[in-house]
Every structure is written in structure tokens, then in C-alpha cells.
């Protein structure tokens, strides 16, 4: 089976998100977006994997997050697995 893995990585709450703050300030400066409370900037990765089942794919994706893709000290992740064929 072929799967698409969507990984969203964001800074943990409590870690200063300088990009998010800058984007928030820009939007506020443009006017008309007074409703905006906060922007948080993260990272989005799409991985294509070929494996026998969804569980295997999830284990592999979590391994890749632990080994390289995510720094647990400052970041958190969410993983979504989609079957493509």
C-alpha cells in the first residue's frame, strides 16, 4: 500500500515564536484584522511511504520525527496518515 503522511510541527507553548510575533504585528499593522489574537508559525512536511499497513507507516513516521524531523525540546508534532492507493 502507498500512504501519504502529513506532519505538522509547531513550537511548544512557552517557547517564544519570533516569526509568529512578526507576522501578527504585520497583519495588525495592515488594519482590518483587529480580531486577530495570535499567529503561530510552524512547519509542514508530506512524506510518501510504501508499507504493508497503516500501523507500520505510523511507527516509521514517528521514528523519523524522533531521529531528525522534530526537536522535542522545543517542538511538538501531529501526524496524519492518508491511504493513497
Amino acid at each position: 500500500m502507498e500512504y501519504l503522511v502529513k506532519i505538522t510541527i509547531t513550537l511548544k507553548q512557552g517557547v517564544l515564536d519570533t516569526q509568529g510575533k512578526a507576522v501578527t504585528a504585520s497583519l495588525h499593522g495592515m488594519g482590518g484584522y483587529e480580531a486577530l489574537q495570535e499567529v503561530r508559525v510552524g512547519r509542514f512536511l508530506e512524506l510518501r511511504l510504501s508499507a504493508k499497513d497503516r500501523g507500520t507507516v505510523l511507527t516509521l513516521a514517528e521514528g523519523m520525527c524522533d531521529d531528525l524531523l522534530v526537536n522535542d525540546l522545543i517542538e511538538e508534532r501531529s501526524i496524519e496518515v492518508v491511504e493513497i492507493r
Partner: peptide
Amino acid sequence: TEAGLLPGVLLANRRP
């Protein structure tokens, strides 16, 4: 720090 040879991490400067 990324290799785990020193603790912590270097983040974007306070003023980007």
C-alpha cells in the same frame, strides 16, 4: 546541541 553533545537549542534571535 542538535547532536545532543551539549544541552539546549539555539533559537531565532529575540528581535528577528
